[in-house]
Design a protein around this nucleic acid. Structure first.
Length: 279
DNA sequence: TTGTGTTTTATTGCCTCC
DNA sequence: GGAGGCAATAAAACACAA
């Protein structure tokens, strides 16, 4: 087949054809039917002229041909031999041309599908990354807060243990004597002392009836602050060396990991999206 | 007009299936 | 072994900016 632009008669045709139409829609095949027919007939003439030569140039399919092929592709993107021959006859093409068109069309479809899949995956990844970054920030803030609170706790524990030593005659003997671990290490003794102090504060009516996790307790109210804060000394919780009665009280005050996170809701409400969405 | 990038048509070589 | 599919690639056709 002959290249259109090389034909001398084409120049005349182009002058007939409005420039706007020529530039439109990506290719010249958006012509009127009459013009397309003229092109086709010209091509046929050129083909006849050059029938003797071995140089057959590529020729683009007409709009109608492509439309028909697209329609068929939508129905079924693979081509059975019968359908191929029938389609080729209908469109005036070689069966091989139809087969090649389908093959190339499948390749294009696959590329587009891959692009779509990639876009979806990328969006998912970006969203996940955002969540991760937010959680990281949240974690950092919580860690910082935890450190501060631990420091505060330590400080207040040392203060309260001093005052408790003075008041010790009032503390229930069974709570003092019970050592479930039966361990007499110095470190354990210290923990025990602290836990006793914690227990004492816990069972006092004033502290057990209210558990001010709402941030309303001001730091100036040190006694109240102490009473709800003590159970969170990790050593106390992990040591688990209370009298059963006291442990029961403690269990009521113990928080799950999630609840513990909510503890900080005064300053920053943890979303915990990862936890809830992951279920 | 021309250079360059993109799209479309066609070929080649390899693989699988019957 | 032949038919058909696919990936990679060539080459023509086309679009478009400079």
């Amino acid at each position: 087949m002959k290249r259109l632009s090389s034909s001398g008669s084409l120049d005349a045709l182009i002058s007939i054809c409005p420039p706007k139409e020529e530039k439109n829609s990506k290719n010249k095949q958006v012509y009127s039917r009459e013009f397309q027919a003229m092109l086709d007939s010209l091509d046929e003439e050129d083909s006849i002229e050059e029938a003797g030569q071995a140089t057959e140039k590529k020729r683009r399919l007409s709009i109608d041909q492509v439309k028909a092929l697209e329609k068929n592709f939508e129905v079924e993107n693979k081509l059975e031999p019968e359908r191929k021959v029938k389609l080729a006859e209908e469109l005036g093409l070689q069966p091989r041309q139809v087969a090649i068109w389908f093959q190339n069309r499948r390749a294009r479809w696959k590329t587009k599908q891959l692009e779509k899949d990639y876009a979806i995956l990328k969006a998912s990844y970006d969203s996940l990354k955002l969540d991760y970054n937010n959680l990281e920030k949240e974690k950092e803030a919580l860690t910082l807060k935890l450190k501060e609170l631990k420091a505060k706790l330590k400080e207040e524990n040392s203060e309260s243990s001093n005052s408790v030593k003075e008041d010790s005659p009032n503390f229930p003997q069974h709570a003092k004597d019970h050592d479930l671990c039966g361990n007499n290490d110095d470190s354990d003794r210290i923990v025990k002392e602290e836990s006793n102090v914690n227990a004492q504060l816990l069972i006092s009516p004033a502290s057990s009836s209210s558990f001010p996790f709402n941030g309303s307790s001001s730091s100036s109210d040190s006694s109240n602050h102490k009473s709800w804060f003590q159970p969170f000394d990790s050593r106390v919780i992990l040591g688990n060396m209370y009298h059963p009665q006291l442990v029961k009280v403690e269990e009521q005050c113990m928080l799950t990991a999630e609840e513990f996170c909510n503890f900080f809701s005064v300053d920053q409400a943890p979303t915990l999206q990862w936890y809830f969405t992951g279920q």
